[in-house]
Design a protein around this nucleic acid. Structure first.
Length: 491
RNA sequence: GGCCCGUUGGUCAAGCGGUUAAGACACCGCCCUUUCACGGCGGUAUCGGGGGUUCGAUUCCCCCACGGGUCACCA
């Protein structure tokens, strides 16, 4: 059904710049972007900043930076301009005023002089009676005289939309098919605040209509706002776009994802060392499924395959394990220089390296990163795996590791290893491997009796990077020193 | 509470009246590597409940339960 109207598809992403850019917002942006790119349409980026209290330019910048980081670009909107601007709601006030005047004039909207306290009292009264809180229309039919009186009291009115009674509002939703609401469940709602600024439900309609948006694809939390908006489209005789409400992203406990579920903003994932390709890949698969069994997709592939037809109606739990898996996949293909760049801030933050690195030291760090890269899902995990390369004051992780070094054969293994090392000028991974194998043969010991003690002596742990990569990076001197140190520890 | 939306394994999900109910993550086992990880192979595990409709329901309809969203001078 979408196919026919694809020609001039215009979709939009319209975030409000209030705080960190939520991962759910990123998914909405992504779906819109995918749609626009898939059908050769346009993506418009509009900023909904009518909440003066909470909106900030800083957060607007964060959103743009996050979108760019994800590789999501827009064709019209803030920064890039376009024929339907301005693209920031606070800069569109005269436009809204024009339509508000029409609504007022035709009686489809009216001024309401009720105060917060009065409204709150009304809500409470309704609740006590077990009724749903709703504006009862006190100012619906004020006479000119009454209005004058209220104005004289110094009251600043809001403007409310007069919701028609007994009207079923039905609309087609691209992901949910037909959705129906009863207008009787909607009280006259505020469209312009007493400070003259429009409320979201009103501004969004005017903007979408005026910007000629053809498909309004947004999160499910807006589904029950849609009938209110449709009423305004109708009152103003504006053409309705196609709506599509995508499901929400839930936390592990199945409630809407929030801070207590861990990282929720795009910035946080970036800071933890996730790759934008991985985040995009993961987000695309959350609530949408492509045909086939492929799991890893480039943006280009996603664009080619994306369609609203396979967007899920049910909410999806954010599965960090899967994101980790996808990210480690992309991490593996990353060149070592880039990966090292990503690791550096984390190595510094954990105190493993200092601010200043000379070229030689940087090269060494790079190799350390290379030695542990297969063990991590995201860059912030690198320090914990790389730590063994930095700390020479080895401590036994537990009794088990200490026990391993107390094995009577270990002294011979270490003496032999120390002797061999002492005879070397430098050492490579292959040489380490050969050396340890030779020791096993000479002393007639199994591999486990050689490798494990050496590993424990060097790191204090039973798990870690391969000895063949660890020892050359440590160098002969540090290797020998660590062995002596550890052997003394368990004596 | 009213309204709206949803419900296939632990998670993401395919399925669109007849299937051995895909695949992925996670988990478990085996192999590889003289550790771990990586990789390879294999395994455990799913249609919320009850009524219909139908020769036949995971699939269509109704009710219930559960989950989510929303009911602001926030978006």
């Amino acid at each position: 059904m979408i196919e026919m109207s694809m020609e001039k598809m215009r979709v939009r992403f319209a975030p409000s710049p209030t705080g960190p850019f939520h991962i759910g917002g990123a998914r909405s942006a992504l779906f819109n972007w995918l749609l626009a790119r898939r059908y050769g349409g346009k993506l418009i980026l509009r900023i909904e900043d009518t909440d003066l209290e909470r909106s900030s330019r800083e957060s607007e910048e964060n959103i743009k930076a996050a979108l760019r980081w994800l590789g999501i670009d827009w064709d019209e909107g803030i920064d890039v301009g376009g024929e339907h601007g301005p693209y920031r709601q606070t800069e569109r006030l005269p436009i809204y005023a024009e339509y508000t005047a029409k609504l007022l004039e035709s009686g489809k909207a009216y001024r309401c002089y009720c105060t917060d306290v009065e409204l709150e009292a009304e809500r409470q009264a309704l609740m006590v009676k077990g009724l749903m809180p709703q504006y009862m229309g006190k100012c619906r039919n004020l006479s000119a005289e009454e209005e004058q009186k209220l104005i004289a009291e110094g009251r600043r009115p809001t403007i409310r939309f007069r919701v028609p009674e007994n009207q079923m509002i039905s609309f087609h939703d691209a992901v949910r098919d037909t959705v129906t609401f009863d207008s009787n469940g909607i009280g006259d709602y505020v469209i312009v605040k007493s400070d003259g600024l429009p409320v979201y439900n009103y501004a969004v309609v005017l903007d979408d209509a005026l910007m000629q948006i053809t498909h309004v694809i947004r999160a499910e939390e807006h589904l029950s706002n849609t009938p209110r908006q449709i009423l305004i489209y109708e009152a103003l005789g504006l053409p309705l776009p196609e709506f599509g409400h995508i499901s929400l992203i839930l936390g592990k406990d199945r409630s809407k994802m929030s801070k207590r579920h861990g990282a929720t903003s795009v910035e946080q994932y970036k800071a933890l060392g996730y790759l934008p390709e991985a985040v995009v890949n993961f987000l695309a698969l959350l609530g949408w499924s492509p045909p086939g069994e492929q799991e890893i997709f480039t943006s280009a592939e996603l664009i080619e395959l994306f369609s609203l037809d396979h967007v899920a109606k049910n909410p999806a739990v954010f599965d960090i394990d899967k994101l980790n898996w996808i990210n480690s996949h992309y991490l593996k293909k990353l060149d070592l220089d880039t990966l090292t760049e990503m690791a550096l801030p984390h190595l510094k933050a954990t105190g493993l390296i200092s601010e200043e690195l000379n070229a030689e030291r940087l090269e060494w760090v790079k190799q350390v990163v290379g030695a542990v890269r297969d063990y991590v899902s995201f860059a912030a995990q690198i320090p914990e795996h790389a730590a063994v390369f930095f700390h020479d004051d080895v401590a036994m992780e537990n009794d088990e590791t200490a026990q391993i070094l107390k094995d009577p054969d270990v002294v011979r293994v270490m003496d032999e290893f120390l002797a061999k090392l002492a005879a070397m000028e430098s050492i490579t991974g292959e040489q380490v491997q050969a050396m340890l194998k030779a020791i096993g043969k000479e002393l007639k010991l199994g591999g486990k009796k050689v490798f494990m003690p050496v590993r424990v002596a060097l790191t204090g742990q039973m798990h870690g990077p391969e000895l063949a990569s660890l020892i050359p990076l440590l160098g002969i001197e540090r290797t020998m020193a660590r062995i002596r140190h550890s052997m003394k520890l368990v004596q």
